[in-house]
Structures are given as structure tokens and as C-alpha cells.
């Protein structure tokens, strides 16, 4: 069962980063020797408009503690509306997670431009802190539902239902 305590584990976070902005920002963060948690696994995508809900679900199903999509700033998408499409998709995925019994905070969308290396660092730090607060993904550790009516029965959540965090 769940032998890893909240807060004292190194989360595994999957980041889907747009080639035109966030992936470049992550690259820049490296070039600038900025330090940030090694918790994130970055997946390059040609545009966040390529994202689909199933990709976020699969990442969590396969054990990621948190997953986020990072796209261009509003109005800056190379393909015009890809970032808006991805951003609109994420609340739907959060709703699915609530139904499944996972905390919706495990999924998020961010805007990070190519020049915003510092912003990229902050985003990774935020998601890492969030994953630590939520604890390990119960799908990986064999825990029960952590969200919704079934969570209480299993004694999953300690601090009650959470609000949806803003990106």
C-alpha cells in the first residue's frame, strides 16, 4: 500500500511543452544555469493544440504524480489557436479526474513564452510543490480514491475538497 508519505518524496511530473515556447524556455533555463527540481520529464510537442485529454489521462494512469501542458502566451500561438484549444481542454480533464477519484490539481495548463526561462522554473517549482502536497499518485501506490464521495470512506483526503487552482 501507500508507504510513501506526502511531502517527502520526489514526484514524477510529466510536462507537455510546446516546441515554439515552453520547450525553448526550458532549454534557455538550462543555458542560463537556472536551478529547478529534477522532478519534471519534458515531452516536446509541435503545438499544445496537438494535446488530447487521453494523453493527460494516460500519463496519470501510468503513474505520473502530476502532469501539465505548457503553451504559448495568449495571441502568440504559431498555429493561431493551439494554446487556447489546450487550455479549454484542461478543465474537462480535471472534471474527469474528479469522477475517477483523483485530485483535479494533478493536472494544469500554463502559458510560458520562449524567453521566460524564469517563469518555466516557477511553473516546475509550483507543480512540484503541488505534487508533494497531494502526495504520490494513488494509481501508482495502490491507494484508494483521493477525491469525491468515496475518498472519505477510504480516509483518503486529509484537508477536504480543494478548489480548482488557476493557471
Amino acid at each position: 500500500m501507500n508507504d510513501v508519505k506526502k511531502g517527502d518524496f520526489e514526484p514524477k511530473i510529466v510536462a507537455f511543452a510546446c516546441e515554439y515556447c515552453s520547450y525553448t524556455a526550458a532549454d534557455l533555463a538550462g543555458s542560463m544555469r537556472l536551478q529547478y527540481p529534477a522532478s519534471v520529464r519534458i515531452i516536446l510537442i509541435p503545438c499544445t493544440g496537438r494535446m488530447d485529454a487521453i494523453m493527460l489521462l494516460k500519463a496519470l494512469d501510468e503513474g505520473a504524480d502530476a502532469v501539465f501542458v505548457s503553451g504559448c502566451q495568449p495571441g502568440d500561438c504559431h498555429f493561431l489557436r493551439g494554446n487556447y484549444r489546450a487550455k479549454a481542454m484542461v478543465p474537462g480533464v480535471k472534471k474527469m479526474l474528479e469522477e475517477i477519484g483523483l485530485d483535479p490539481d494533478r493536472v494544469e495548463f500554463f502559458h510560458v513564452a520562449a524567453s521566460e526561462a524564469q517563469r518555466w522554473v516557477e511553473v516546475v517549482e509550483e507543480m512540484t510543490a503541488r505534487a508533494r502536497r497531494l502526495g504520490p499518485n494513488p494509481l501508482r501506490t495502490g491507494g484508494g480514491p483521493e477525491y469525491g464521495p468515496l475518498a472519505e470512506k477510504k480516509g483518503g483526503k486529509e484537508d477536504g475538497p480543494r478548489r480548482q487552482a488557476s493557471a
Binding site: 485529454a53 489521462l57 496519470l60 494512469d61 474527469m96 469522477e99 475517477i100 477519484g101
Partner: peptide, 19 residues
């Protein structure tokens, strides 16, 4: 087909959490 993949994935995850 896409929604089938999504529902199947949701069911698998929910089933894992609910034993």
C-alpha cells in the same frame, strides 16, 4: 473511437482506485 479510448482509460483508473 476517441471517446472509447477515454472512457476505457477512465474506467481502468477508477477500477484501480476502487479495488
Amino acid at each position: 473511437e476517441k471517446e472509447v479510448g477515454m472512457l476505457a482509460s477512465e474506467l481502468k483508473m477508477a477500477a484501480k482506485l476502487r479495488d
